[in-house]
Design a protein around this nucleic acid. Sequence first.
DNA 1: GCCCAGGTGGGTA
DNA 2: TACCCACATGGG
Length: 220
Amino acid sequence: MNEVYSRLFTRFGPQHWWPQTDGAFEIIVGAILTQNTSWTNVEKAMANLRHADLLTPDALNGAMEKRLATLIRPSGCFNLKAKKLKAFTRFLFEKHHGKLAHLFKQDLAILRDELLAVYGIGPETADSIILYAAEKPIFVVDAYTRRIFARLELVREDVTYDETQHLFMEKLPHHTAMFNEYHALVVALGKDICKKNKPRCDVCPLIKICHMGNNAESVT
DNA sequence: GCCCAGGTGGGTA
DNA sequence: TACCCACATGGG
């Protein structure tokens, strides 16, 4: 796992996901908006929210769901995501006085359980929030992670989210900055492989990555 | 015109 | 538990 990280970093360089100039709340909003959506679309939705001064817990909590949906339209699934954003701020105000610092000061395991209980927050979004917004060390798993590492025969094909996460966290030092880069680098590799096989692939990205075979070894 | 994107929740068997 | 499906826009 360490070896793969070194090679990925050498190959792709630092990815600068969620730069520290973004506030924690913006990161959370982005994590929800990016579900099954490309980042360029999320940026448009975020720009709309910023322009409307809605990128604070208070403002978002007070905004009408319908208005939110209109503003975040470019990110797709906008009605659903507006509902999810409202669900998060409702949770934040009901349990933590609307303060992220109050939410984040909890133990990592408790924090994760609380996030998972919020409507619209699944394991990947919860872990992204913990790693990128709360800056606590947790490994974020996504579809690329499982496919790529299954192909490298480091995990089983049918491995679950939690199993994958456990495996990585067992073998790697718990460093927030490193987990941050690692996840971003895996996504960079996944995209890179997709691009290379684009012209001939019917079932992207599954087949593409299944086809990467020996090339993957040389890339990573 | 088709496929996918930094997923999640709900329904059915 | 294991699959399906809806959500929905914009870029390649």
